[in-house]
Design a protein around this nucleic acid. Structure first.
Lengths: 228, 228
DNA sequence: TAGATTGTTAATCGATTAACAATC
DNA sequence: TAGATTGTTAATCGATTAACAATC
């Protein structure tokens, strides 16, 4: 797991211990519920929701059981109620200010990605070290010098940073982010970041995903040859 | 797991059964080895490689043991030899032609991503349904009409497709891809794809990654309050 | 031979799944 | 009450990790 372990804490009502695998699926369920709600569905069974989310229904029910008892036996789940409960549990009923560093192709794509704003994330700043890029306006947000990082993080209370720089720059950017007070980093640069205790890092690596597909593809080909 | 289960097969020398969790880490090790090689390192211990890859050394050795015995006790691993063995196992010593469908911001970023070409993937076509986009040349590749899909897949023997369209179009694109002969799909559209047996789908969802960070961030905040 | 480090074992931990009692 | 579906149990499966024998 890339994300730091949740350390032991005194139990309070809202601090149940939800397994990492479940946490990673909650956003998938949330998206499925939003789709159902938009289609006018008001109630759904675990079977229906599981199908929409691409998991089996036993896993879905087990996952939801960590949040509480939000369904009705014999009936199913109220789509909007469950949607709210999951959103609250994830923390996306509140607004999360986010900074993106590195405004290349990927940074542009991220800045323009509508899925962020619609899900509780607000891009408050786009930062780039290149002065040439600092005249641009992307997705309605000014590109600003990377050196403004500390000021912006302090003023806006930014906890989450996105790194979309080349690999060579990523560690230095992460260090500055952490020093400025950011405690969660989403890293698109193809490099392993070293960060201190209590800092969560998640990594998205486009070429790694393709390589995993290639591995299975290669085995399919080997299998086909055997069969013929 | 998103990717389809590897089905039972008669055992041949090259068809060892490698756990999914290990398969997902092999590209990380490969990247770390490339970085070490570029820095001039010729030999490394499991401890060093593990540090570079961001895992612990017991896990690394266990993972490598599924591939064979490529290290030397008391010495460590030859960087270039291990690099080749992992690349061969993943299947990236060969060239994989890839098509990308949907040339918006994300499609542009993907087409320009150098990490593909350097790791055995060759973007042979960029496809978009919008005739306005079909005049563009992105990263040296012409954007072509989506309807050319079948011809291109057939001519070039494309097995892997990348979907970077809006969510609403993704399922139709996936259906056409599968009908054309593609058997592995990397999906960036925020929707669950329904595909038949034997088709591997991996999904990258930018907003889901941020939501997982938000969950942990929320808990950190709750924890801090308790402590004060 | 002595020191170092791999490859493997076995214990532990966490995730998945089927089955079904509880209950609407 | 009868039918439906949740929430939970318990079994199984897969992944992680520490420890160490094998061996360079």
């Amino acid at each position: 797991m890339e994300s730091g372990a949740v350390t032991a804490r005194t139990s309070t009502e809202s601090a149940r211990d939800i397994p990492e695998a479940t946490v990673a699926r909650l956003p998938v369920y949330l998206r499925a519920l939003i789709t159902l709600a938009e289609a006018g569905t008001t109630t759904c069974s675990s079977e229906e929701l599981a199908r929409a989310a691409g998991v089996n229904s036993a896993k879905l029910r087990k996952d939801l059981s960590y949040l509480g008892s939000y369904g009705t036996r014999g009936v199913g789940y109220d789509v909007n109620y469950l949607r709210y409960q999951i959103a609250r549990e994830i923390g996306v009923t509140q607004d999360w200010p986010v900074v993106i560093v590195g405004i290349g192709n990927l940074g542009h794509a991220l800045a323009n990605y509508s899925g962020f704003r619609s899900r509780g994330f607000r891009v408050v700043a786009l930062l780039d070290a290149d002065p040439e890029r600092q005249d641009e306006v992307v997705a309605g947000v000014d590109v600003r010098p990377f050196d403004d990082l500390e000021a912006i993080v302090g003023e806006q209370g930014v906890a989450i940073g996105v790194i979309a720089t080349p690999a060579a720059a990523a560690q230095a950017v992460a260090d500055r982010m952490v020093a400025a007070g950011i405690t969660s980093i989403l890293n698109f640069a193809p490099t392993v970041l070293a960060v201190g205790e209590g800092i969560d890092v998640r990594k998205v690596d486009l070429s790694i995903e393709l390589q995993i597909l290639a591995y299975h593809e290669q085995r399919k080909a080997a299998h086909d040859e055997e069969a013929s």
